[in-house]
C-alpha cells in the first residue's frame, strides 16, 4: 500500500523494504550519471589495488536508494532533510536490504521522521540515517 496523505501514517509504521540493484553494471550506470567513475566504485580489481575488498557502492548512491524507498512508500512525500552515516562499505555485487520505520509524527507541519538502514546479507548495518518528509 502506498501512502497518499499524512493522515494515513502511524507511529511505528514500517516502510516496505526493497532490495536495491547493487550489481556492478547498475553501479557503473550510477557512477556515470553522477560523474564518479573512480575504480573503487566501478571495477573490483581496481578497487582491490586500492586496498579495498572489492568495488563499493558510492555513499551518494546509498543515500539516494534510501530516498527512493521513501518515494515508493509515499510517492508525493517531499524530502525536508536526510542525514546518513556511512558506517561501513556497501559492497558491489552483494545483496543488501533497505528498511525504514516511522519514529515521529508532527501533525502541525505534517511531517514524519523515518529511521533508515541498509543492511547486508549477514544482517550488518552498513548505512544508517534519518529522514524528515512532508506529506500532503
Amino acid at each position: 500500500m502506498t501512502i497518499a496523505s499524512f493522515d494515513q501514517v502511524e507511529f511505528g509504521d514500517e516502510l516496505p523494504s526493497f532490495t536495491p540493484d547493487t550489481g556492478l553494471e547498475n553501479v557503473r550506470r550510477f557512477a556515470k550519471a553522477a560523474q564518479m567513475m573512480a575504480k573503487r566504485f566501478t571495477d573490483h580489481e581496481g578497487a582491490r589495488k586500492e586496498g579495498l575488498p572489492g568495488a563499493m557502492v558510492p555513499g551518494v548512491m546509498s543515500q539516494a536508494i534510501l530516498t527512493a524507498m521513501i518515494h515508493r512508500w509515499a510517492p508525493e512525500a517531499a524530502l525536508v532533510k536526510i542525514d546518513t552515516i556511512f558506517r561501513a562499505p556497501v559492497m558491489v555485487d552483494e545483496a543488501h536490504e533497505v528498511n525504514g520505520v516511522v519514529t515521529d509524527l508532527d501533525e502541525e507541519t505534517k511531517t514524519a521522521e523515518i529511521d533508515l538502514t541498509i543492511t547486508n546479507g549477514a544482517g550488518e548495518t552498513r548505512v544508517l540515517g534519518t529522514a524528515t518528509v512532508r506529506l500532503p
Partner: peptide, 30 residues
C-alpha cells in the same frame, strides 16, 4: 541515469518528458 540506478519509480525523476521532470532530492550531493 541517477534516478533509475537508485530505484526511483516516480516519472518526475525518471522520465524527461514528464511536465514535472526534476532532479531527485539528493541529486545535488553528487
Amino acid at each position: 541515469g541517477f534516478s533509475v540506478a537508485c530505484g526511483e519509480t516516480a516519472s518526475r525523476y525518471t522520465d524527461a518528458s514528464d511536465p514535472d521532470f526534476q532532479a531527485p532530492p539528493t541529486f545535488p550531493a553528487r
